[in-house]
Nucleic acid binder design. Structure first.
Lengths: 256, 256
DNA sequence: CCAAGCCATATGTATGGACATACTCATCCA
DNA sequence: TGGATGAGTATGTCCATACATATGGCTTGG
C-alpha cells in the first residue's frame, strides 16, 4: 500500500481521493495493528507532515477524522493520544427528545391516586437509584388518553426529596413528569436508563385499569439523571396487548 | 448580541471563545428564527467572510459545525443549503455491534427443533418484512446457555429464499444468526428494527423451555435489513423472570 | 521536600492565497 | 425543441505562515 522510502511515506501518486483521506487510512491501519499502541502518543503533526511530505493542514484533516471516529484524542500542548484500536461508534439510534425515545403521547392526562413518603430499603434504593435510608416521595396513579377516555398505564413514580415540593403539580399534568421536574431544575436531564420487562400485572394495577385477573404487563422502569443525581424514577405498567416498544437502529455512515 | 454596522457583523471584541464558535452561534440563531429558510441557500463563504470581517477558513469552521449538527448541507459548486431549523441529534444510544445492542451472549448454543417452508400470508408478511405469496424458511428452536445447560429462549426465525441454503448452518451455531447470514452476503446489515412486547408464552414454547402453564414471555421481534432487503427476521420468546431489556441513553454534547 | 515559575513543546486558531472539482445556467447547434 | 458544451460560481483541497494556548517537566527557592 504505502511505499516506505527512508522516513517518507508517499501518498501523492497512489490511489484516488483526497490526500488527507489516504493519510487517514494509513494511520488507521497503524492504529488497528498496534503500531501506535493504546495509551501512547502518536507522532506529532509536524512529524507526520514530514513523513508524508505534506502540509500540516492536510495532516490535521486526517487526524480530525480519526478523532471523530474515536481512535484518538488530541490535546493542545500534549499531542495526539491513542485511545482505541477500533472506531467507537458503529450503530446508533438517535432521538430529538426523550418523549420521542419513550414513545410518549404528549396529549395524555394523569390522575394521582395516592401519594406517600417512603424510606428506601436496600432493594428499593437500588431500583430507584437512591440510597438506603433516604426519604423519597412515592406517587401512584393512572395515565389516561384524555379526561374521561381510556386508561393507558398504571404508574409508580419515585421523586427525591429536593423535588418533593413539585409533586402536587403531577395531578392533571399532560405530558411527561421528567420534563415538568426538569423545568424546575437548574441543570438539564442528560442521561436516562430504561429497563423493559414482562411481568404479571400487579393486582392494584389490574383494578385501576379495569383488567381481568391474570393480566400481563409490559413494565418500563426509567431513571432520569442530571448532573445533580436522579431527578425521577418511574415504573410504568402497560397492559401487554396495548403496547409494544419499537426501536429502529441504523449503522453509521463512514464505516463502510 | 451582534452589532450590525452596514453589512458587517462584528465578532472580534464580543464574548469569549474562538471566533468561529461565535460566528456559528450567530448563524445558528438565524437558522432557528428562519432568517435563512429551510430549502434556501445561505450566503456564500466569501459573503459571510465579508460580513464578519474574517477569513474564509474561519467561516468554513463555523459552517462545518453547522453541517455536523444537521442544520445545513454543503455542495461544491452549489452552496450551503438549509435543511433544518433544528439540530438533528439530541439523544443517542450507540453500540459497537448489534450483538451488544441486543444484549446477546455470544457463547450460547442453538438447537433446531423444526424447519419448514412457509408461504407468507398478508399478516405474516407484515411481521417478517416480506411480501404475501413469497416462500420463506421458518426455523424454530431453542437457544441454550451451553450444550446440556439451561434453555434461554424459544426462537422462531424466518429466512428469505435467497439465504435458505444457509439454514442448515443454524444447528449448533454459537452466536447470532444475523451475523452468520451477513457473512454469506455481499452487503452488510445496515439497519435493524426491534419490537418488544409482553405476551403469554406460546404452549409449544412452554413445553420446549420446561415452563409451567400460564408462563409470561418478553417477546423480542427483530428484522435485520441490508440494502438488498430483509436478511432474517427472528422472534425470540424469553421467560419473563429471566430477561429484562436494558437501555442507557445519553444526551449529546454540544447541545448545552 | 514541596511548591511555584519558567521554558520547551504540541495542538488550536486564524490569515491569505491558489487551484481543483462539482454544479447550474445559458447559449448554440442539429 | 432538445441536447451538448462552455462559462461562471461556490465549495473542496491544499499550501505557507504566524500567533495563541494548554501541557508537562525541570529548576529554583523557601
Amino acid at each position: 500500500m504505502s511505499v516506505q522510502d527512508g522516513n517518507t511515506t508517499q501518498t501523492q501518486d497512489e490511489g484516488t481521493g483526497p490526500r488527507y483521506a489516504r493519510i487517514q487510512k494509513i494511520l488507521e491501519s497503524r492504529l488497528r495493528d498496534g503500531t501506535y499502541p493504546v495509551g501512547s502518543l502518536m507522532p506529532t503533526e509536524i512529524e507526520l507532515a514530514g513523513e508524508f511530505d505534506t502540509s500540516r493542514f492536510t495532516v490535521r484533516e486526517a487526524l480530525r477524522h480519526l478523532t471523530e471516529t474515536g481512535f484518538v484524542e488530541r490535546r493542545q500542548g500534549l499531542g495526539t493520544r491513542v485511545i482505541s484500536t477500533e472506531p467507537q461508534m458503529r450503530y446508533s439510534q438517535t432521538f430529538d427528545s426523550l418523549q420521542e425515545l419513550f414513545q410518549v403521547a404528549v396529549e395524555t392526562y394523569y390522575v394521582v391516586m395516592h401519594t406517600e413518603e417512603v424510606v428506601l430499603d436496600k432493594s428499593l434504593a437500588e431500583v430507584v437509584g437512591g440510597k438506603a435510608g433516604e426519604t423519597w416521595t412515592r406517587v401512584e396513579g393512572v395515565r389516561w388518553t384524555e379526561p374521561g377516555g381510556r386508561p393507558l398505564a398504571f404508574i409508580e413514580s419515585y421523586v427525591p426529596a429536593r423535588f418533593a415540593k413539585y409533586v402536587p403539580e403531577f395531578q392533571g399534568h399532560q405530558g411527561a413528569f421528567f420534563s415538568l421536574l426538569e423545568s424546575h431544575s437548574a441543570v438539564p436531564i442528560d442521561e436516562c436508563e430504561q429497563e423493559i420487562s414482562a411481568a404479571p400485572m400487579p393486582e392494584k394495577a389490574q383494578r385501576y385499569l379495569g383488567l381481568a385477573p391474570g393480566a400481563i404487563a409490559l413494565q418500563l422502569l426509567r431513571r432520569y439523571h442530571s448532573s445533580e443525581g436522579v431527578v425521577i424514577t418511574s415504573c410504568n405498567w402497560h397492559p401487554a396487548e396495548q403496547l409494544s416498544y419499537k426501536m429502529h437502529i441504523k449503522r453509521n455512515r463512514g464505516q463502510a
